[in-house]
Nucleic acid binder design. Structure first.
Lengths: 222, 222
DNA sequence: GATGATTTGTACGTATGTATA
DNA sequence: ATATACATACGTACAAATCAT
């Protein structure tokens, strides 16, 4: 028991499994290197091995799992080099999104961004790590969508998803919340002014600092 | 050996099909909107439906095919908006690669880039469209690899693959070969000088022009 | 609107290939 | 090194859903 809820309305079983497994990987429930046995997963989800295989195939294509022919599937384990590369890419992608957002956001989008940003100051004062992390996800999503470019949104969100397992504990670092808010503030200010170059630079710097904070965990806790 | 990606293994049937289908889509043999019948494909490749389904799943995750539940799979058809967004992203990604290449390429990589670029002038003089297109692919691959960032390489190559069907006929436009070479020259010159900003700007401009050239075909011939 | 035909989604069985004793 | 054990890759069968008539 304690198994997965069989949601009838969410289309195909494969999609449900993909979402569930991706969520497990992203939230850290399934840690990098953990082997994903087809029969175990089939039992856990109460389905046959066929949809399991298909789900693993999609997750592999997403880069979340590594699947070697005849040797099984494991949660993707990334090298330190690839991890750095992903953070580096993330910084560039966020920079692009912020730059485009500064140029293209509607006034409604700008105001929503600013309002939520100001509201989030309360979470910082309360040191509400969980809530701030949730807000932070939304903040970045706003910037991705504000770029008004579906493909940029796609690859940025995908890269973010792949980095999520390595970025989870960042807000536990002392003072990180306040620092994050200040960095957000620089981005928001630039976006509100329509200053694309500054917005891009601020967003790049923001991610770069997260990268450094996370590498501490990557090298130790992983 | 730092084994990173196991993409090259030709062992499994699924991988062969993925490559074959992706190639068919990219080369235009399979046109956007074409329905991909599982049984037909199974017969065509002389395998059962199972590997076909798995291949379609992976291609779907790559964005090359659209797959709706219980309604079959078709070669991905992109809207004009998404196409613009992909070209826009491509310009940014190429810009990043060129910028990084200018900063990070080894001297060996720089010399190889410059040598091949100069050699390609012959193809322009001969107006050898096919050969120049092949060279051009290699030229861009060099820039992607020269960035020395595995993830940037990954998403740039993936985006390029998705754009390939819409970029194929660009060199048929009169004078496009010479123009392309001049644009390459600007990139190569900047990279050789280690001028990251110029290299990035030149690469972005290069793709942007290709975008405009291709949109002619996208709106008419597709 | 209902029914039949076609196609996809899932289950299960067998064979092949890899790792281990 | 040979053999055993186990997990994956593929094939076939059935069920469910969609489309056409």
């Amino acid at each position: 028991m304690a198994g997965k809820r069989t949601l009838v309305r969410a289309g195909t079983t494969v999609d449900q499994m993909v979402r569930a497994l991706a969520d497990g990987i992203v939230t850290g429930a399934l840690r990098p290197g953990a082997k994903l046995d087809e029969v175990s997963l089939a039992g856990r989800f109460e389905v046959s091995r066929t949809p399991v295989r298909e789900a693993l195939g999609q997750l592999s294509a997403m880069g979340l799992v590594d699947r070697r022919p005849n040797r099984g599937a494991i949660v993707a384990v990334v090298t330190q080099e690839h991890l750095s590369s992903m953070f580096e890419s993330m910084a560039e992608l966020e920079g692009i999104c912020a730059r485009f957002s500064a140029e293209r956001m509607t006034t409604a989008e700008r105001h929503a961004l600013e309002r939520d940003h100001h509201d989030s100051a309360r979470l910082v004062r309360l040191n509400a790590e969980e809530d701030y992390e949730a807000y932070n996800t939304g903040f970045h999503s706003r910037l991705y969508r504000g770029a008004h470019s579906s493909h940029i949104l796609e690859i940025t969100a995908a890269t973010r998803a792949r980095l999520a397992p390595f970025r989870r504990a960042q807000f536990r670092l002392p003072g990180r919340l306040a620092k994050s808010w200040d960095e957000h503030d620089a981005i928001v200010t630039a976006v509100m002014r329509g200053d694309a170059a500054s917005a891009g630079a601020a967003a790049r710097a923001h991610v770069s600092i997260v990268s450094e904070a996370s590498s501490v965990f990557a090298s130790s806790g992983l």
